[in-house]
Design a protein around this nucleic acid. Structure first.
Length: 581
RNA sequence: GCGGCUGUAGUCCAGCGGUUAUGACAUGGGCUUCCCAAGCCCGUAACCCGGGUUCGAAUCCCGGCAGCCGCACCA
């Protein structure tokens, strides 16, 4: 069994990840988070909130998971996400139908599936592999489609990313942030993609959780006020150039921006924050790198894009986070689709005075002469520059027709106006996290095996901040005199909000192993000395060392240990290794 | 979607046409002043689903579903 299998098996057996719908035969690409997986996920999300909501002052929102058609027309998911496919009836090979007629039709995208199929038949196009007959053209859309309300009037789609929820709320978010840049909104939630063949467990799901931030900034200033805080952090950068050499390059974020490896400070800052977040949840630093998208894999609108990649045994380097400068692409796309202006009015430092030519067509004369066209003629006149307005006759083009107008019918004057600012479409910096992949990475990178007395011990070395169980309270034996004080400790710890497990089954050693396997950082054991001396032992998962602590101090010491305010060896009196007793 | 391999308790596996379906680990109960998966006793627990062949199917055949590996896909 390789490590990947061991981790998957442990995750299933211990209640982290379960294949969904097992009772009914299952469905690929869906997973349940079990009793330990759900809290692990929740705690990872909470740390993300700490980084990207609380620390940055971003706004968390929650938009519907179903979206209406317009959103995905604007985002490009409706056309870009949906491919016409055809298959060879002989060899069963699948092809993009539109690609097969590229040399015949200039814009195959404009054709319906029926038209593409007709074109294939008329031109007697066969299978490129074996020459066999091709099947009818069918649509495969990666978005799940549904109907909103009765009848088939309104189509709905399960969102393929959470990002659009932030973009389409731009006007209200802007108002919430009192009409000024920069600001940002985030969402943690489910997204859906009807993958053709999802595999590799939780790495490619049909329903998955994303945490995305959309940071709206002024495109003219991409520096970041907190960049100093991260500029000295070192990181492995796998830039476009480094990829050509085949070797990532280690440098500080300051250097990376200075040398133009990363496009600008703001992007670099959020890459650095991403790095800190991944470390905080337990991704191993030596199995992590940031890889820049190559120019051909970058979306055409993106100015720069970096993926956080982690190394997983058997799967290799896997993308878990993308940090992109999406420029003004999304807001402009939604403006075009919705006809709503999505820009910010930004004041100049100083109001600017400038001369402006005001053209006033004489509509009293133009109206009767041009009737219905009068408005269009007037608009055309207003758009003219000073040069074109000179002379006795003024020429304008309206609907492809040249029209001559006497200059007496147009008055124009130069006015001084004061301009206080300008309309700006913000650029968007987007860190986008795949929570399920991160959770799997945390499992994989936390998994260790030691040998104890020739036996293999499996341990999940979770950071205390993500551990689904923080403390296990264990009476040495299942006897009333030990059970009673143990239950009191459990109650006290739960009262403080700690995630506590209580277990009396089997031998003490077995319970330690069980807790090692689910990553419980500390165990409190009540033994006969507790009754005589009023102390209990606390065991450290990673070192398997134990200390004795007076009953009254257990809660305080545990809390300090869990937030790493106290070193284990200094938290109590060391107990000799159990073997020597 | 295509091709190859696979599917038996929670886990790993035996059984390869007729068995009360083997075993280990895990798990529940009991005994044992038991600190790193100790021991003893007793229990719970499975043939992926649906068809077919056969007197009889976990076993053979077909289809579905799921997993793994390749191919394709991965906005």
């Amino acid at each position: 069994m390789d490590k990947n299998e061991k981790v998957n098996e442990l995750a299933r057996r211990r209640g982290f990840l379960w294949p969904a719908f097992e009772l009914y035969g299952g469905a690929a690409g869906f997973y349940d988070y079990g009793p330990l997986g759900a809290p692990l996920k929740r705690r990872i999300e909470d740390i993300w909130r700490q980084f990207f909501v609380i620390s940055e002052g971003f706004a968390e929102i929650e938009a519907p998971t179903i979206g209406v058609e317009g959103i995905f027309q604007a985002s490009g998911h409706l056309s870009g996400f949906s491919d016409p496919l055809t298959g060879c009836k002989e060899c069963k090979e699948i092809y993009r139908a539109d690609h097969l007629i590229k040399h015949i039709v200039e814009v195959p995208d404009a054709l319906s599936n029926e038209e593409i199929y007709k074109c294939i038949q008329e031109n007697e196009i066969g299978c490129p592999e074996c020459g066999g007959e091709l099947s009818e053209v069918y649509e495969f859309n990666l978005m799940f489609k549904t109907m909103i309300g009765p009848g088939n009037k309104m189509a709905g789609y399960l969102r393929p990313e959470t990002a659009q929820g932030m973009f389409i709320n731009f006007p209200r978010l802007l108002r919430h942030f009192r009409d000024s840049l920069p600001f940002a909104a985030v969402q943690i939630g489910k997204s859906f993609r009807n993958e053709i063949s999802p595999r590799q467990g939780v790495i490619r799901l049909r329903e998955f959780t994303q945490a995305e931030a959309e940071i709206f900034i002024d495109p003219r200033d991409k520096t970041h006020p907190r960049f100093d805080e991260v500029k000295d952090i070192k990181m492995k950068f796998y830039s476009q150039a480094a990829q050509e050499r085949g070797e990532p390059e280690e440098m500080t974020f300051g250097e990376a921006v200075g040398r133009g490896v990363i496009a600008h400070q703001t992007l670099a800052y959020y890459i650095a924050r991403t790095y800190q977040f991944l470390l905080a949840v337990g991704v191993a630093p030596d199995k992590m790198r940031f890889r820049q998208h190559k120019s051909d894999e970058m979306a055409h609108y993106a100015a720069d894009c970096w993926d956080a990649e982690v190394f997983l045994d058997r799967l290799g380097w896997i993308e878990i986070v993308g940090v992109a400068d999406r420029t003004d692409y999304d807001l402009k796309a939604h403006t075009a689709q919705s006809k709503v202006n999505l820009s910010v009015f930004v004041n100049f430092d100083e109001p600017i005075k400038r001369q402006k030519l005001v053209v006033k067509p004489d509509f009293k004369a133009l109206g009767p002469r041009f009737k219905g066209k009068a408005k269009a003629v007037g608009e055309a006149l207003k758009a003219l520059g000073p040069e074109e307005l000179k002379g006795d006759k003024i020429r304008v083009m309206v609907d492809g027709e040249t029209i001559e107008i006497e200059s007496s019918l147009v008055s124009c004057e130069s006015v001084e106006e004061e301009v206080r600012g300008e309309e700006i479409v913000p650029h968007v910096i987007e860190p986008s996290f795949g929570i399920d992949r991160i959770l799997y990475t945390v499992l994989d990178h936390s998994y260790y095996e030691d040998a104890v007395d020739g036996e293999t011990r499996a341990v999940l070395r979770f950071h205390p901040a993500v551990a689904p169980i923080e403390v296990a309270v264990l009476p040495l034996m299942d006897r009333e005199e030990l059970v009673f004080p143990a239950k009191k400790i459990q109650e006290e710890l739960r009262g403080l909000g700690l995630r506590v497990d209580y277990d009396t089954s089997g031998s003490i050693g077995r319970r330690y192993r069980r807790n090692d396997e689910i990553g419980t950082p500390y165990e409190v054991t009540v033994d006969y000395e507790t009754l005589e001396q009023g102390t209990v032992t606390i065991r450290d998962r990673d070192s398997m060392l134990q200390i004795r602590v007076p009953l009254g101090q257990v809660a305080d010491k545990l809390q300090a240990l869990l937030c790493k305010a106290l070193k284990f060896e200094e938290a109590g009196t060391m107990v000799g290794p159990a073997k020597e007793e």
